[in-house]
Design a protein around this nucleic acid. Sequence first.
DNA 1: ATTGCAACTATACGCCGTGCAGTAAAAATA
DNA 2: TATTTTTACTGCACGGCGTATAGTTGCAAT
Lengths: 230, 230
Amino acid sequence: MAVQVLSRRARLRAETSAEIRATALKLMAEGGPDAISLRAIAREMGMTANAIYGYYPTRDDLVTTLIGEVYGDLVRQAEAARDAADGPAARLLAWARAFREWSLANPEGFRLIYGDPVPGYQPPPEGIEPEQRACADLVELVVAAWPTAAATQSHGDHRWEDFDPHVTADLRAEHPDLPPAAVALALRVWGRMHGLVTLEVYGRLRAQTMQPGKLYEAELDDLVRSLGLN
Amino acid sequence: MAVQVLSRRARLRAETSAEIRATALKLMAEGGPDAISLRAIAREMGMTANAIYGYYPTRDDLVTTLIGEVYGDLVRQAEAARDAADGPAARLLAWARAFREWSLANPEGFRLIYGDPVPGYQPPPEGIEPEQRACADLVELVVAAWPTAAATQSHGDHRWEDFDPHVTADLRAEHPDLPPAAVALALRVWGRMHGLVTLEVYGRLRAQTMQPGKLYEAELDDLVRSLGLN
DNA sequence: ATTGCAACTATACGCCGTGCAGTAAAAATA
DNA sequence: TATTTTTACTGCACGGCGTATAGTTGCAAT
């Protein structure tokens, strides 16, 4: 007998929910994260704003869901670029370039993900999933470079206890000899990418340079060299 | 004869204007930049919201003014720390640490300065003054390190035309032999500081490490080493 | 004393999120 | 098939917001 995976009701429900998210993303693309208003979504969909409350208990919940989706899109794109490249240096560069390119192509999405959280919003203590994945990606890329990078790093006074076990547990099991400085390095690499891209997306570099891309490439070049990858 | 610098009218006017800004900053410290609402300010001051329109033509103008003030405070603090230190390395470190410390002490101010601009807001093409000063500070610090830093930098393909003349004109007059790569380096240094501090202020590092300060120190250590300053 | 202007208030419009009460249709049950 | 329950939705209301327009009050210069 054919199992009815989703009842008619559940199917309609899922479709409406998806339409809400799609409409919200469209509004965001046009007017930034602030343009995501329940009333505007409902207007666009020919509904009442209150109807949305049957799908998301509050505007912030909807936005949180969207953050997860959009962040996931970013990470998938970066990973796809990485997977199309060979070797530690090329993979890191591909990931980093895809990160910037996605951010410039989706500035409003970038704002949604990394911008001001809704007032009072606290992310779950274990972090949001795509962000953990992005961090894991970077740790993995740094670990791949660690044979050459270790020599260039002053190991500082990093300890395993400094880091969240969520981040490090699997890692330590797989790489028992890895020092905590490698994780610190990965987070610092994140910071370097995040810094320049944020400044560029938010237009802070426009008053300084006409070629922010050159800046980013110079940074990546320095990064790869400092990891001993060339 | 005693020149009356400010008429009674003008004095009252200036005082009210200052009270508006102070109240706005207080509200921001309590509830973040979003809590800056004309109605709330007026309520706090025992006025009508519309009274504020006599001082600032729009909410965004008020916020823009506040950004300038707060940004100026940040820069002054960084410069004060720098001026209390001796030598290129110590001065850079002092500036960088003061930048982070101010940001952590004034997270809402940081959001105001660097967070999502009000929708539709475009900063003046010549940039806002305190930001230009911060950039100039960093350029100056990098220039001081350039004798040792030049060797470590791959000069890339930076050109003077890549950069805004506002930023470079005075600089080139004072340091005719300086290559454009030095300015690029200064902007990249800005990016490195901005990246980690942004991640920390926005709580993105909380899910990763308990010791974001160690991360920042490691980054600065790497930075100083890459500038050949130790 | 009169005029003029500056500071302020009152009212109103259209946004917003959201709580509560009601309704119509679909689904489940009998 | 008839009845009950559940679900999806609408309507209305409240209080918040920025801000435009018009009216009011009091000080200052004439």
